[in-house]
Simulated scan of single mutants.
Amino acid sequence: MKQSQFMSLLEAATNVFVGYLLAIVTQIIVFPWFGIIATLHVHLTIGLLFVGVSLVRGYLLRRLFEHLRHH
């Protein structure tokens, strides 16, 4: 069964959202180990900088593999 472009986008967005939450929690735990002290606002901002890149990456890779599967 072929995955629609919308479902590819939805899957990528869900993956990015879950990854974003995990990244924030990880940053809050790990940053202090390296002497990096940041506010919650800074953690959220750092995470947001990568959300767009992750969403585009996930979507494009999904579409690439979908294309390869059919050729």
Results as ranks from 00 to 15, higher is better:
residue 1 M to D: 10
residue 1 M to R: 05
residue 2 K to I: 06
residue 2 K to A: 11
residue 2 K to M: 03
residue 2 K to H: 07
residue 3 Q to P: 04
residue 3 Q to C: 04
residue 4 S to T: 15
residue 5 Q to R: 10
residue 6 F to C: 09
residue 7 M to C: 02
residue 7 M to Q: 14
residue 7 M to G: 03
residue 8 S to L: 07
residue 8 S to K: 02
residue 9 L to D: 04
residue 10 L to I: 11
residue 11 E to T: 13
residue 11 E to Y: 04
residue 11 E to H: 03
residue 12 A to P: 04
residue 12 A to M: 04
residue 12 A to S: 15
residue 12 A to Y: 00
residue 13 A to R: 02
residue 13 A to W: 01
residue 16 V to Y: 02
residue 17 F to V: 14
residue 17 F to M: 12
residue 18 V to I: 14
residue 18 V to F: 06
residue 19 G to K: 01
residue 19 G to W: 01
residue 19 G to V: 01
residue 19 G to D: 03
residue 20 Y to V: 03
residue 21 L to V: 14
residue 22 L to R: 07
residue 22 L to Y: 07
residue 22 L to F: 11
residue 22 L to T: 12
residue 23 A to E: 05
residue 23 A to H: 07
residue 23 A to F: 04
residue 24 I to T: 12
residue 24 I to F: 06
residue 25 V to G: 13
residue 25 V to L: 14
residue 25 V to S: 13
residue 26 T to D: 09
residue 26 T to K: 09
residue 27 Q to A: 15
residue 27 Q to N: 14
residue 28 I to N: 13
residue 28 I to W: 12
residue 28 I to P: 03
residue 29 I to A: 15
residue 30 V to H: 10
residue 30 V to M: 14
residue 30 V to Y: 08
residue 31 F to Q: 15
residue 31 F to T: 12
residue 31 F to Y: 15
residue 32 P to T: 08
residue 32 P to F: 03
residue 32 P to M: 05
residue 33 W to M: 14
residue 33 W to R: 11
residue 33 W to P: 03
residue 33 W to V: 14
residue 33 W to T: 15
residue 34 F to A: 14
residue 34 F to R: 04
residue 37 I to W: 00
residue 38 A to I: 03
residue 38 A to V: 08
residue 39 T to S: 15
residue 40 L to P: 05
residue 41 H to G: 12
residue 41 H to Q: 12
residue 41 H to F: 06
residue 42 V to Q: 09
residue 43 H to S: 08
residue 43 H to D: 09
residue 43 H to F: 00
residue 44 L to K: 00
residue 44 L to W: 00
residue 45 T to F: 02
residue 47 G to L: 00
residue 48 L to R: 04
residue 48 L to C: 07
residue 49 L to H: 05
residue 49 L to P: 00
residue 49 L to V: 10
residue 49 L to D: 08
residue 49 L to G: 15
residue 49 L to I: 10
residue 50 F to M: 07
residue 50 F to D: 07
residue 51 V to S: 06
residue 52 G to T: 11
residue 52 G to H: 07
residue 52 G to P: 10
residue 52 G to D: 10
residue 53 V to G: 13
residue 53 V to W: 01
residue 54 S to D: 13
residue 54 S to N: 15
residue 54 S to Q: 12
residue 55 L to M: 13
residue 56 V to R: 10
residue 56 V to Y: 08
residue 57 R to C: 10
residue 57 R to P: 05
residue 57 R to M: 13
residue 58 G to P: 04
residue 58 G to H: 04
residue 58 G to N: 12
residue 58 G to I: 04
residue 58 G to Y: 02
residue 58 G to L: 02
residue 58 G to D: 10
residue 58 G to R: 01
residue 58 G to F: 01
residue 59 Y to I: 15
residue 59 Y to S: 08
residue 60 L to T: 15
residue 60 L to E: 13
residue 61 L to G: 13
residue 61 L to A: 07
residue 61 L to N: 14
residue 61 L to C: 08
residue 62 R to K: 14
residue 62 R to G: 11
residue 62 R to H: 11
residue 62 R to Q: 12
residue 62 R to W: 01
residue 62 R to I: 06
residue 63 R to Q: 14
residue 64 L to H: 07
residue 64 L to G: 01
residue 65 F to C: 05
residue 65 F to Q: 08
residue 65 F to M: 10
residue 66 E to M: 01
residue 66 E to G: 04
residue 66 E to P: 00
residue 66 E to Q: 06
residue 67 H to V: 05
residue 67 H to K: 06
residue 68 L to R: 03
residue 68 L to G: 01
residue 68 L to E: 05
residue 69 R to F: 00
residue 69 R to K: 06
residue 69 R to D: 12
residue 69 R to S: 10
residue 70 H to W: 00
residue 70 H to G: 03
